[in-house]
């Protein structure tokens, strides 16, 4: 039987082993090391508190990685809401938009995707994991992963299609 001390020890060992992965996933979203560490801490705390709901067949670190991604995007969304004025339609560039502006819009659209597709885009496309690893981290088969990527891109297209009506 697993004692509370054993659980704590196992959880901390998992952090020790996978902290670079968690940080790397979060820093692609938040960029700032202090915010990244705060997001990872917060995600770890949530994972610890919800550990009883963790399904044993999934890998603990993969499950935590997905919570890290959610937490980081939640923080990004909050940041974006604070700077909302930058992304309103009135600010839409009249001529060719800058690449920086387009990437900001992309980040915003990803942040607003449903959780499942947000995680898929982040792990399978942005973080650059190969199909097998990404599928394992998302606790699905490679075939399901491809379908999710396809659907996620459709949703991104819907979200961004009105940005440049001339295209």
């Amino acid at each position: 039987m697993s004692t509370p001390e054993n659980q704590e020890c196992r959880f901390e060992n998992m952090i020790l082993e996978h902290l670079p992965v968690f940080r790397s996933l979060s820093r692609r979203i938040l960029n700032n090391p202090v915010e990244v560490d705060d997001a990872v801490q917060s995600a770890l705390l949530k994972a610890w508190q919800q550990r009883h709901s963790f399904r044993g067949q999934a890998q603990l670190a993969s499950w935590v990685a997905r919570i890290v991604i959610n937490e980081s995007y939640d923080r990004l969304r909050r940041q974006q809401q604070e700077q909302l004025v930058e992304f309103t339609n009135t600010d839409l560039p009249a001529a060719e938009p800058s690449r920086e502006w387009e990437l900001q819009r992309l980040d915003q659209a990803i942040a607003e995707l449903p959780e499942l597709y947000r995680q898929t885009v982040h792990i399978a496309i942005l973080a650059g994991y190969d199909t097998t690893t990404a599928a394992a981290m998302l606790d699905c088969s490679p075939n399901t992963l491809y379908q999710r990527i396809h659907k996620a891109k459709e949703l991104l297209h819907e979200a961004l299609q009105n940005d440049h009506p001339e295209n």
Binding site: R99, E102, L103, L106, K153, L156, L160, N167
Partner: peptide
Amino acid sequence: MTTPKIDALLEAR
């Protein structure tokens, strides 16, 4: 924004 454009942006990101 077209699908190829989104693909290109995702790659750039």
